[in-house]
């Protein structure tokens, strides 16, 4: 009882502190007053400390199984293991909002403290973050308190949703929610730069860094979500184009576009306003995602999270869209103001000698493709909602996304192969002639696009000779090979320079960033191969087997041996035993009679080439109804995503640096380089 009141007290104090922080920051921003800026920051940090106190209180209530608190009763029971009881913190509506806020406070405090030397920028960013935090705190205090008490304390809780009772619960939601909340930080800095009329380049480095943090967290969250869906939901796939999945993908896509467009901004002083639009869109899309999850307005696998908070988030979304739209219209139009910094392009080689495709052109095309892809996904996601308003509700399925997304996907793969090879400002005039005369030379043995063409051609021939006839594979795999060739030759160029160069021990930040980005590109290419391979070559058999009978899928023969009955955390479990060579696969079904639900536990045998994936759908006497899948190359998706995140970590685990000057004309700094 006292614990709940303490928690509510923490939230109330946090609300007062962030509201005060917003006012202090506003004053600091308007007057450029350093002291009020410090007060605003300190109030924000104090608010965060109170939110941390509330979180610790909720955790104590959960672990202490304080069933007087409604949240604890609704999301745990005595049979739940200790880690999952702690994970119920973000498993329920109110707790997940508190967790969102906790991470917003942590990321926001660090970001604001690191930017405090820029008084107006930090003050306006503080204002935006405090306003966002205040919204969440109002909701937590007034509408959905995690510390609401029950009139009568029950002896046991209702328990966590059976689907969530899995190891994935410990990893997927924390990262995804962290990603969602972290998008608020670059948004706040972008808005602050617009409102405060920032000049110079260092706010770009700051915003980029925070966008990268949010993007990294979201990458991990999305991958873990796919991994979890694959391991738990039992339909043999990892991505169902569910509205909530789409909602998590869209801010990630927008930020991916931003991380590339910002390089044009850093290098050439262009695309400044567009970059801001992307950062702001990412945040708005993340709020839209939260709205879709909470409102239950669209049918989704995440329907367990539906709550009456939908209208609140819709209102917040409207306010955020209006405010950011107004600020963009007010301050965002002149390119020079928002990132061009009025710095004129000063080409060392006259522009007339350079023409044709350029690095910045590749970035622009990449941004157009990603923006169009995001718009197509947004349209598909919101179509049921929009069409329902005017008449019959229309719903699009995965085939819509696959058909619409395919050209963009191919275009992006092509750019991965070509873009890094293009010089800034475009190709010089004699480029094509040099390419013809010295095919393996321009601008060096390891810089030729012919390697990519060679890799694509060899892969295509290899696939055709190997008897592959599926068009998606014949188109994408050569593109993936070309992209790999491009990345690897960039590493080769780096290595050869390192061996030759006098300052070989020097490893600058830009080089780290460059090679980190290529590692991320390698990751994306491996993921792409995994996505296409698993989609095109997947095989499925639905069978009912008696003991001793076998089923063969994808060259693997599984023999059903029988079923076993047991219990798991006090719940009845039926397990089927299947023998595959020397291995045994044991898919099972767990019953939760009190909740009226039965959940399948899938058995997966995974190798780098394919996964054998077995779902026990039913048992009839001694017979077992099974769905058996052969899913090729799925492990490539997890491995590629790991490389992607590793690349970003390697490339960016340093202090942000300001780009000192424009790149000289024709410099060959690659995608990752600033």
């Amino acid at each position: 009882m006292l614990l709940a009141e303490l928690g509510s007290g923490f939230l109330l104090a946090a609300l007062a502190l962030v509201a005060f922080s917003a006012l202090a920051a506003l004053r600091a921003g308007r007057r450029g007053d350093r002291r009020w800026g410090q007060v605003g920051l300190r109030a924000f940090v104090a608010g965060f400390v109170c939110v941390a106190g509330a979180s610790a209180t909720l955790l104590a209530a959960l672990l202490g199984r304080d069933f007087a608190v409604a949240f604890v009763t609704d999301h745990t029971d005595r049979s739940l293991s200790l880690p999952l009881t702690a994970a119920a913190f973000y498993g329920g509506q109110e707790g997940s909002l508190l967790y969102w806020l906790l991470l917003l406070g942590a990321c926001g405090s660090v970001a604001l403290a690191s930017a405090r030397h820029r008084v107006r920028l930090a003050a306006y960013a503080n204002l935006v973050l405090a306003a966002v935090a205040a919204f969440f705190l109002i909701v937590l205090v007034a509408v959905a308190s995690p510390f609401a008490l029950l009139p009568v304390t029950p002896p046991d809780g209702v328990g966590l949703n059976p689907v969530l009772r899995d190891g994935g619960m410990l990893v997927h939601p924390p990262f995804l929610l962290a990603g969602y909340s972290a998008f608020a930080v670059p948004f706040a800095f972008a808005m602050a730069a617009l409102v405060g009329g920032e000049e110079g380049n260092d706010w770009i480095a700051l915003t980029r860094r925070y966008a990268l943090v949010a993007w990294g967290l979201q990458s991990v969250g999305l991958t873990l979500g796919m991994w979890w869906a694959y391991h738990v939901l039992g339909w043999g796939g990892y991505w169902g184009w569910d509205p909530v999945e789409n909602a998590a993908l869209m801010p990630w896509l927008a930020t991916t576009a931003y991380l590339h467009s910002v390089q044009v901004q850093e290098r050439r002083g262009g695309l400044g306003s567009w970059s801001l639009v992307l950062v702001i869109s990412a945040f708005l899309l993340s709020i839209l995602g939260t709205f879709i999850v909470r409102s239950g307005i669209l049918p989704s696998v995440h329907s367990f999270a539906v709550s009456p908070l939908g209208p609140w988030f819709f209102g917040f979304l409207l306010v955020a869209v209006t405010a950011s739209g107004a600020v963009l219209a007010w301050r965002g139009t002149p390119e020079a103001r928002s990132g061009g910094d009025g710095r004129p392009a000063a080409p060392a080689v006259p522009e007339r000698e350079r023409s044709g495709p350029s690095r910045e052109g590749a970035f622009v095309l990449q941004n157009v493709l990603i923006a169009a892809l995001t718009a197509a996904i947004l349209w598909g996601t919101l179509l049921p909602l929009l069409s329902g308003m005017v008449g019959r509700e229309l719903v699009v399925g995965p085939s819509y996304y696959q058909r619409v997304g395919a050209p963009f996907f191919l275009g992006l793969l092509g750019l991965l192969a070509v873009g890094p090879l293009l010089p800034w400002r475009g190709l010089s005039r004699g480029w094509s002639r040099r390419l013809l005369v010295h095919p393996l030379q321009p601008p060096g043995f390891l810089g030729s696009p012919l390697w990519a063409v060679l890799a694509a051609g060899l892969t295509l021939v290899g696939l055709v000779v190997g008897g592959v006839h599926q068009l998606p594979v014949l188109v994408t795999f050569p593109l993936v090979a070309a992209g790999l060739a491009t990345c690897l030759q960039e590493y080769g160029r780096g290595a050869s320079r390192w061996l030759r160069g006098p300052g070989r021990a020097r490893s600058s930040t830009s080089q780290r960033r460059r090679y980190g980005a290529y590692l991320a590109h390698l990751g994306v290419l491996i993921v792409a191969a995994g996505l296409i391979g698993s989609h095109v070559w997947q095989q499925e058999r639905q069978v009912i087997l008696q003991p001793g009978q076998s089923v063969t899928v994808g060259g693997h023969t599984l023999t059903y041996e029988g079923t076993l009955s047991g219990s798991r955390d006090g719940h009845p479990v039926t397990t089927a035993r299947l023998r595959m060579g020397a291995e045994t696969l044991e898919p099972s079904r767990v019953s939760y009679p009190s909740l009226g639900q039965t959940v399948s536990r899938i058995a997966i045998r995974s190798t780098p080439f394919d996964d054998v994936y077995v779902v026990l759908t039913d048992t009839r006497g001694r017979a077992a109804a099974l769905n058996v899948f052969d899913n090729p190359l799925v492990s490539w998706i997890w491995a590629g995503a790991g490389l992607l995140v590793l690349g970003v970590l390697i490339g960016n685990l340093t202090r942000p640096e300001v780009v000192p000057e424009l790149a000289p004309a024709g410099s060959r700094a690659p995608v990752g380089a600033r």
């Binding site: 007290g9 109330l12 009020w36 104090a46 109170c50 106190g53």
Partner: peptide, 30 residues
């Protein structure tokens, strides 16, 4: 009790939060 806790927390937070302003006043007096 909730309000009491909240008020106590705000009292506790006030000195460090307002310190940049208080320090200026102290310096002016000094």
């Amino acid at each position: 009790m909730t309000w009491v806790f909240a008020a106590l927390l705000l009292l506790l937070a006030a000195p460090p939060v307002l310190w940049p302003l208080l320090a200026r006043r102290e310096r002016r007096r000094g």
